[in-house]
C-alpha cells in the first residue's frame, strides 16, 4: 500500500509540473504584451513599462518561470493589479467561501445519490425506480443557474427561510455562514447528484447480477444486508471514478452559482479578474484549481486501493491475472 501511495505521489508531482508549465506558457504565448493588454489600448508607454517590471515580465522566460514557481512554493503569488493586494490574501479570503461551498455540495451529492441510486437498483423496473429515473433525468436536464433561481423564488422570496444571496461572513457565526451556503450548495449539487445516482443505479444493478450476490443470499442475508454488505462496496468503484470527475464540475459550476447568489467566492473572483484583465490573479486561481483537481484525482486513486484489495496488491500479483 505504501509503495502504491509513493507511486501515485510521483504521478501527482509530475502532473503539477506539467500543469504549471502549460499555464505559464499560455500566458507567455498570448500574442502581445500582457502589460499592455491589461492596461488597455490607451495606456501610456511608461505606465506599460512600469507594469511590465511590476509583473516581472522582464528577463528570460526560464528565469521567470522558476521565479513564479519558487514564489508559489513560498506562498508568494504576486500582487493583484486591480486590487493592489497580494493575490494570496485575496484567494485565501475567497477560498473561505468556495471551499465550504464545494465540500457542502459534494457531501450533498453523495448523501442524495448513493441511497437514491441503491433504492432504484433494488426496486428495478418498479414504480420507485421509474420515479427516480424520471426525477434524475430532470435534474440533469435543468441548468443549475435556473434551478438556483427557482430555489431563490421558493425558499427565499416565498417562504423566506433563507436569504436570496450574499454572505454574512464567518465572523457572524458558523450557523449564519452555513445557512447562506445551503441554497447555493443545493443548486450546485442537484445535477451532479442526478448523474451520480444514475451511475450508482447501473453499478448496483451490475453488481446484483454477480455470482457472489447469489452466494450472499444463500448464506441467509436479507436484501438490505446483501445491498449494504456486498453490493455497496463493489458498486463504489465506478461511483468513485465519476465522483472524482464531478469535483471539477462542482468547481466550475461554482463560478456561475456564486454569481447568481452574490457570494464573494473564488468563482466571482476569477470572473471579475477576467473581465478586469487581472492576469496575475487569473493565473494564480487557475493554478490553484488545477492543483485541487490533481489532489482529488490522487485521493480517488487512493480510494480505489482502499476499496479494492486487488489494486492494493496488483504489483505483487500480476501473475495471477495472466
Amino acid at each position: 500500500m505504501l509503495k502504491f501511495i509513493i507511486n501515485r505521489m510521483m504521478t501527482l508531482a509530475i502532473s503539477l509540473i506539467v500543469a504549471s508549465l502549460v499555464i505559464f506558457a499560455a500566458i507567455e504565448l498570448i500574442p502581445g504584451d500582457p502589460a499592455a493588454f491589461m492596461l488597455g489600448i490607451n495606456a501610456a508607454p511608461d505606465t506599460v513599462a512600469a507594469l511590465r517590471q511590476e509583473l516581472g515580465l522582464d528577463g528570460h522566460p526560464v528565469a521567470r518561470y522558476l521565479r513564479w514557481v519558487a514564489g508559489m512554493m513560498t506562498g508568494d503569488f504576486g500582487q493583484s493589479y486591480t486590487y493592489q493586494v497580494p493575490v494570496v490574501d485575496l484567494v485565501m479570503a475567497r477560498l473561505g467561501i468556495s471551499l465550504p461551498l464545494t465540500l457542502m455540495a459534494l457531501v450533498l451529492t453523495i448523501l442524495i445519490a448513493l441511497p437514491v441510486g441503491m433504492m432504484a437498483a433494488s426496486k428495478r423496473n418498479k414504480a420507485a425506480d421509474w420515479g427516480i429515473m424520471g426525477v434524475t433525468q430532470l435534474g440533469i436536464a435543468i441548468p443549475n443557474f435556473w434551478f438556483a433561481m427557482i430555489l431563490v423564488l421558493v425558499f427565499a422570496i416565498q417562504l423566506q427561510w433563507f436569504s436570496a444571496g450574499g454572505f454574512p461572513g464567518w465572523d457572524n457565526g458558523l450557523a449564519a455562514g452555513l445557512k447562506a451556503l445551503v441554497l447555493p450548495a443545493v443548486a450546485l449539487a442537484l445535477p451532479q447528484a442526478s448523474i451520480l445516482a444514475r451511475v450508482m443505479r447501473s453499478a448496483m444493478i451490475d453488481v446484483l447480477s454477480q455470482d457472489y450476490i447469489r452466494t450472499a443470499r444463500a448464506k441467509g442475508l436479507s436484501e438490505k444486508q446483501v445491498l449494504l454488505r456486498h453490493g455497496l462496496r463493489n458498486a463504489m468503484i465506478p461511483v468513485v471514478t465519476i465522483l472524482g470527475l464531478q469535483f471539477s464540475f462542482l468547481i466550475a459550476g461554482a463560478i456561475i452559482i456564486e454569481n447568481v447568489f452574490f457570494l464573494p467566492g473564488l468563482g466571482r473572483l476569477v470572473f471579475q479578474a477576467i473581465t478586469q484583465r487581472d492576469l496575475i490573479v487569473v493565473e494564480s486561481v487557475v493554478m490553484l484549481l488545477v492543483f485541487s483537481v490533481i489532489i482529488v484525482t490522487f485521493l480517488v486513486d487512493i480510494a480505489y486501493a482502499w476499496i479494492d484489495p486487488r489494486l492494493r496488491q496488483s504489483r505483487l500479483n500480476l501473475g495471477a491475472f495472466r
Binding site: D211, Y212, R214, H230, N234, P309
Partner: peptide
C-alpha cells in the same frame, strides 16, 4: 466468481 472480491 462466487466469492466477493472485496471482502477477506
Amino acid at each position: 466468481t462466487a466469492l466477493n472480491p472485496l471482502m477477506s
